[in-house]
Write a protein that binds this DNA or RNA. Structure first.
Length: 718
DNA sequence: GAGCACTGC
């Protein structure tokens, strides 16, 4: 029998206009060749372009770009800003004399699909007048391309070769409200460039919420006279349908159960239309999917006319399963997509009319006092809630069911903490230094990272090395700074070392990886290390399908080696080519690892790292890994768990490691630390090592011990 | 003893 239909009660306050800020019509299969239009159909394209809401602001936009160095465009979903604005600028002559109009996107697929669409509108193939540049795929022509779409990370890379971005006349940062790490870096750098290049125009496309923050940041007018502002704002209305928002009457004790009940309630009482439910992670998604599938079976047994088709969606899902959510269902079937946050920005599913929002999201957090990254289930922001709601109004008016009270909604923060404020800054600092920002403390951050992190350590160490000031710096800051010094990316004055630091910054990887790669040639194992580094960039080498866990685990054991995960990865690449499917390997990931490896090899050649092989000797490889990852070392504790060398923190081997469940090695290293649920700390990518290797590799690092509790540890290490 | 939101260079 079906469970009694929902006891959930919702109420609907005054209708809310969803503040939607994105307009990508994401075609997930963008690799097909674009259609070329003949002049006859071009007329209708012109008409379509004129119908977009942004069109009637055309002259105003061009006037603003002419008059202000920076223009903030608040453009709601479907207004056409991403595709039209660059074309208006092109038509108005902003791309003459070899200049380029650049438009950044936070995601690769978006850059490709938008470039394709704009090329289509202009009746040409992408890669000529309109092009794109993303990592591993440059589809632009240095001579011919006038409008270039690129990822924000790519723009930052380009600044290394061309610090003033001389080839660009205008740069538009799209989706700036998402505040990704690279968007924020680009924003800070562009402000700096604008002071030297008065002719460079910057357009920031953002949500309403942030417009003023961007305006105040970019406005260089200090006179108080608004007539002298250097930054203007323009709002363009969107083209979406209204979404009715409902809240629960009382707080929900268990949002997983509540999601299931709400789906059933919608199915029972609402008209046609697909459902999209947001949850925080894979486990929750699978749980809801399985509960709903049970219910759906019962419902069809009792003769419910309309069927439910329940589909999970998260990034770790195999590609073929992900594609299922885009398939159309017959009118007698209601599609229910149970997704993680991937459905909030990265993908758009057509046909969604009902959204269920649990109010939570899993976010990365960085704890500077432990140097450990963790994933924390956090309440979403209001901006995020409205983005989720907006997913219901893409095709026709929709409804959003929030599994929380209106009172709780009011307590949510206005926007999500920018990535810049919750990430490890070592790579950011290295990049900024490489871009000639000597004093990273003076860098104009749109949202400055917490002062208590490495930045403060840098300042204190740069200005004075007196004991008095050092006492104020906590141990971890010294360690972070020291880590970069030992890696030799920075000297003790905080300057980028040449060549080591300069080269490290050029690698699209964190400093530890770069160090390991650059030294691997002299260690005699660069061929192996480059493969291992590439493999470490993919999230999961192995896949564990929910219904075949045991069979998969059995297959995975076949690749395992006693030394640990790093050499197991090497083993996978050597033996995997046949039978990726049967061995339950991450096919997409392995393909990606191959491209990453190619890029790394090119950089290694550029820096003349000798191509050497350990010829089957594992120790050389492991020592080389320790060289980069010396700061991540642990030894076994009599309790059976591990303790970190740097601060005696309790650690466990992550269940995904091949060393999990085996006789634990005395020492482990090379791992990355993750804090997962219940405040337990885990090591991922673990390798068994010898204690004697650390002292030789990172003596300065562990010497720092004398400032704090590490002293006793160190004597045991060396 | 038991688990990994999502991007990007």
């Amino acid at each position: 029998m079906a469970a009694p239909l929902s006891t959930m009660k919702f109420w609907k306050p005054g209708a809310e206009a969803p503040g939607i800020t994105e307009e990508r019509e994401l075609n997930t299969e963008t690799t097909g060749s674009p259609i070329i239009f003949n002049p006859h159909t071009a007329l209708s394209i012109e008409k379509q372009r004129q119908k977009l809401p942004v069109f009637k602001h055309r002259n105003n936009i061009l006037y603003l770009v002419e008059s202000f160095q920076t223009v903030i465009i608040v453009g709601e979903t479907g207004c056409g800003k991403t595709t039209q604005l660059p074309q208006y600028l092109l038509e108005a002559g902003w791309a003459t004399e070899g200049k380029v109009i650049g438009v950044t996107q936070p995601r690769r697929v978006a850059a490709i699909s938008v470039a394709n669409r704009v090329a289509e509108e202009r009746g040409a193939l992408v890669g000529h007048e309109v092009g794109y540049t993303i990592r591993f795929d440059d589809c632009s022509d240095p001579q011919a391309t006038r409008i270039k779409f690129l990822t924000d990370g790519m723009l930052v890379r380009e600044m290394m070769a061309d610090p003033l971005l001389k080839k660009y006349s205008v740069l538009m940062l799209d989706e700036a409200h998402e505040r990704t790490l690279y968007t924020d870096i680009a924003i800070g750098l562009l402000k700096k460039i604008q002071k030297k290049r008065r002719d460079l125009r910057v357009i920031v496309a953002s949500a309403t919420l942030d417009a003023k923050k961007f305006h105040d940041f970019f406005n260089l007018n200090e006179s108080g006279d608004p007539n002298k502002d250097t930054c203007g704002i323009l709002t363009v209305e969107g083209r979406t349908f209204p979404v009715d928002v409902f809240y629960t009457v009382s707080p929900v004790p268990d949002y997983v159960k509540a999601t299931v009940e709400t789906v059933l309630k919608i199915h029972e009482t609402e008209e046609d239309g697909d459902v999209l439910a947001f949850l925080t992670g894979q486990e929750e998604v699978e749980k809801v999917v399985s509960l709903l599938q049970d219910q759906a079976r019962s419902l069809s047994r009792i003769g419910m006319k309309k069927h439910l088709r329940i589909l999970p969606m998260y990034s770790g899902l195999p590609y073929a399963d992900q594609m299922k959510v885009f398939e159309r269902t017959p009118p007698t079937v209601r599609k229910v997509v149970v997704a993680t946050n991937i459905a909030e920005t990265s993908i758009t599913i057509n046909g969604v009319v009902f959204v269920i929002d649990c109010a939570f999201v899993k976010l990365r957090a960085y704890n500077p006092s432990t140097a450990i990254e963790s994933l924390v289930v956090t309440p979403i922001s209001k901006a995020s809630a409205s983005q989720r709601a907006g997913r219901a109004g893409r095709n026709r008016p929709g409804k959003c069911f929030r599994l929380y009270t209106e009172e709780d909604f009011e307590k949510l923060p206005a926007s999500t903490v920018p990535e810049m404020q919750r990430t490890n800054l070592a790579p950011v600092i290295l990049q900024l230094k490489a871009l000639g920002i000597d004093n990273v403390l003076r860098f104009s951050f749109l949202s400055p990272p917490p002062a208590q992190t490495m930045v403060q350590a840098l300042e204190l160490l740069l200005r004075s090395r007196s004991k008095h000031l050092q006492a104020k710096v906590s141990l971890h800051m010294m360690q972070n700074f020291n880590q970069l010094c030992v890696l030799a990316g920075l000297d003790h004055y905080g300057r980028l070392t040449d060549p080591m630091g300069v080269r490290m910054a050029e690698f699209p990887l964190s400093p530890m990886f770069a160090k390991m790669l650059l030294e691997s040639g002299t260690f005699g194992c660069s061929k192996e290390i480059v493969t291992i580094a590439a493999m470490m960039q993919i999230q999961n080498t192995f896949v564990l399908p929910a219904n075949q866990k045991k069979a998969a685990a059995r297959e995975h054991r076949k690749f395992a080696v006693a030394e640990g995960d790093h050499l197991t990865m090497l083993n996978v690449t050597r033996r995997a080519p046949s039978g990726v499917q049967e061995h339950f390997l991450n096919y997409k990931g392995l393909l990606r690892a191959v491209t990453v490896r190619e890029q790394l090899r090119r950089l290694m050649n550029k820096f003349k790292v000798p191509r050497t092989s350990s010829e089957g000797d594992p120790d050389v490889i492991l020592k080389c890994i320790v060289l980069g990852f010396f700061s991540n070392a642990a030894r076994i504790h009599h309790s059976g768990s591990y303790r970190t060398l740097r601060d005696d923190r309790e650690l466990h081997i992550h269940p995904s490691s091949v060393l999990y469940g085996e006789k634990p090695p005395k020492w482990s290293g090379g791992f990355s630390m993750k804090c997962c649920r219940r405040q337990k700390y885990y090591m991922r990518d673990v390798t068994a090592v010898e204690s004697s290797w650390f002292g030789r590799v990172g003596p300065h690092f562990y010497k720092q011990a004398k400032h704090g509790s590490l002293a006793s540890k160190r004597s045991r290490v060396l």
